[in-house]
Nucleic acid binder design. Sequence first.
RNA 1: GGGCCCGUAGCUCAGCGGUUAGAGCAGGGGACUCAUAAUCCCUUGGUCGUGUGUUCGAAUCACACCGGGCCUACCA
Length: 517
Amino acid sequence: MSAQTFFITTAIDYTNAPPHIGHAYEKVLADVIARWHRERGRSVFFLTGVDQHGQKVQQSAEKAGVAPAEFARDITAKFKALWQKLGIAYDGWAETTDPRHIAAVQDVLQQLHDQGDLYKARHSGHYSVRQEQFLTDKDRNAQGEFGPEWGEVVFIEEENWYFRLSKYRPWLAEHIAAHPDFVFPSFRGNELANAVAKEAGDLCISRPKSRLGWGIELPFDRDFVTYVWFDALMNYATFAGYRATNGGQLPDFQQLWPCDAHVIGKDILIPAHGIYWPIMLKAAGVEVMPRLLVHGWWNLGGAKVSKSAGNVVDPDALADRYGADGLRYYLMRDIATGQDADFNEERLKARYNADLANDLGNLVNRTVSMARRYREGTLAGAPSDQSEDAIALQALAADAAVRFDAAMQNYQVHTALDAVWELIAAANGFVESSAPWKLAKDPALSGRLDEVLVVLVEAARLAAALVHPVMPRAADELLGQLGFAGNLANSWGAVAAGHCVGEAKPVFPRLETDVAA
RNA sequence: GGGCCCGUAGCUCAGCGGUUAGAGCAGGGGACUCAUAAUCCCUUGGUCGUGUGUUCGAAUCACACCGGGCCUACCA
């Protein structure tokens, strides 16, 4: 019994630093999946946003000499601007400082408190300011010290509130075992099952206000704010209308839940999204669990991207250089969903030129150009008795469309794109074998030329429509030039007699292969 | 320490027990001219990380080792 709406979310990003390529990849992936569902006629709700609370935000703000709220607002604006630039078409936007979110989180916390799932306890120990966590002896290095990766380490003793995670652990283990599709890809599900079997203890969910003022106040103990988990994870439900009191504004939770895909990185599956989140839902009384789509990372030269290593790639600059859609295409085409990949700008450029400029862009360009040159842009209808090669191309196109959707259904965007490129290659081959420029010289072959042009426009239109979720703006432009603006049908047969194509203009201008020094 | 993944043409990868190991890109040759010096055809190129083993037969299975990466622990 799944809701009618396809509900997809991304992790919400921490507003302590501007977005990098990993943030962009995750949002593009979710956007592509959301767009594909929409274009196949399904109702979709795509939720993304930012996590504005927490110690790191507070510290970054202090360092910058501004209030946490102001700092978070400025970084939030950068994320929003990037999503705008990259064409991320989200339906809901989550900000953890939103009063509606705060009210719902407090409502859940109060309930858990009332039903005895929260308790207060005193804890003392070494605390990493950078990682925002207490350290144990296992965090010490070989020399028995806390290494530099923990940043400043201080000894503190304080009371805090704890959530009875351990109480629900057996339930979670059963849920994972009974639902093989809980986590995609499956090998991540195995990792999670192993982790759940080992994970013990409860979860600290608060910080005293004396130490962290920037957060959601515990309704039953005003001296504390809730720390990260309930604040950040609950967003997937609260911004979908969970426990909403205002009626309007937020969506109807019953319509959206369960979430069909929480798109997250492999680093936050365990323990946050794979353990804490489902247990929080269960404890709060939500019975139907969401599903997790865990993606891999873009590495750089085999190494992990990190600010400290100084190898951060700026997606904003890449979008300027290759276009938002050029970047989107590369991010979807050169990685297998769930796996890691290596980010390489030379490869991005090579793919742009080979796949986008030469194959797809040029196919549309030459097609429209010939239609205009030989038929003043107006096509005859498809002939009643088609030629063999036309029938063959149509069959290949239909097969490509089927394989495209099958791959998308399993989140295999790169495989889906492969299918489209087979169609594009076949269409370019059809141009060569049918040689319209020869047909145009012989009036006796006029009917055949009509057929060839129709077939080419059909093939090009279908390719552009299929590719639309990945490259929405470029595909719109291609479709417009073909005279099919807005026609995203994933099947053959759009051309009617008298169809007019538009102007031919390169949508993916070829890039110079040399890099300017 | 335990567990997992990866190592196949210059590059990115597919193949995962059975004909002479494949694709795309890059390189070489040719054709064509509608097109973004694009396209199409042909082609060069590999001891399938190393070794041993199982098998009629291994890139494909097993064991060990080398190399790269990840997760997770100081319990034998």
